[in-house]
């Protein structure tokens, strides 16, 4: 059932022309950024070659690209999550799921995985672009895979926040703005606190992504993403149940 709902979400997204338009624009941005950094790297390469222990092509080209994607996702995910529940409520199609033999858990997880699959498609171009470099040079596979894992975990946390905010309202626009406000607020909490040991860093998904971005796989970061996502998914389930109870 979870798979059925997930595929329905995906199908619904791909049936809209605006989704394809957005996919095209994003791919254009990724490619432009990728080629731009690659060109910078090629220009600097003769000078870098004279130094010892220099950063390789993966660090110079791939790492900034993943960082940019992480930031873009923060702004993009709320646009997609607003549809998940708020728009269904507004279109009054949510009754179909509520009156079907499904548990709330299946509804929430179905929608969560549906959007996650879409985000995998959306970012699939990035590793493909990076691996074209493998034709001419050696890549740091660990760093690329670590970044991909981090990006997916980051996407999980964003989607779960967006899903929760979407379950709070019947207005998709409010859901989008609300989710964006929370995600941007978490990012600012991280970026604005100057001291390295500030606790504000710890609640920000982007801060935890930085370790993945630098190629550091920390079980603490993974645990953070899993817990963060789980908390918001459980909140979303509770919210849907409460909505049945309190109207």
């Amino acid at each position: 059932m979870i798979r059925l709902i997930a595929l329905r979400e995906l199908r619904g997204l791909l049936a809209m022309p605006s989704t394809w338009f957005l996919l095209a624009i994003l791919q254009f941005i990724f490619t432009w950024f990728f080629l731009n950094t690659l060109q910078t790297f090629l220009e600097l390469q003769p000078q870098l070659a004279q130094l010892n222990n220099v950063p390789g092509v993966t660090t110079v080209v791939a790492v900034p690209l993943f960082n940019l994607t992480a930031l873009l996702l923060m702004m993009l995910v709320p646009i997609f999550t607003m549809r998940l529940i708020a728009e269904e409520r507004r279109n009054q199609s949510f009754a179909l799921l509520l009156s079907a033999p499904l548990s709330t858990r299946q509804i929430v997880l179905g929608k969560f995985f549906g959007l996650l699959i879409f985000l995998v498609l959306l970012t699939a171009g990035i590793p493909l672009m990076i691996y074209t470099l493998a034709l001419g040079t050696n890549l740091d596979h660990g760093l690329v895979l670590g970044n991909l894992l981090g990006l997916m975990l980051l996407a999980c946390s964003y989607v779960s926040v967006g899903l929760y905010v979407s379950s709070l309202t019947a207005q998709p626009v409010i859901a989008a703005i609300g989710a964006l406000a929370i995600l941007a607020g978490l990012w600012l909490a991280d970026a604005a606190s100057a001291s390295e040991s500030s606790a504000w860093h710890l609640i920000s998904p982007l801060y935890h992504f930085q370790n993945f971005n630098a190629g550091l796989l920390d079980s603490g970061d993974i645990a953070f993403f899993v817990l963060f996502s789980a908390v918001f998914l459980v909140l979303a389930m509770r919210r849907i149940n409460n909505n049945r109870a309190y109207g």
Partner: peptide, 13 residues
């Protein structure tokens, strides 16, 4: 089987 006041449809399918 339930048909609410507004039919619950996914308009893009």
């Amino acid at each position: 089987g339930y048909l609410p006041e507004t039919p619950p449809l996914y308009r893009e399918l």
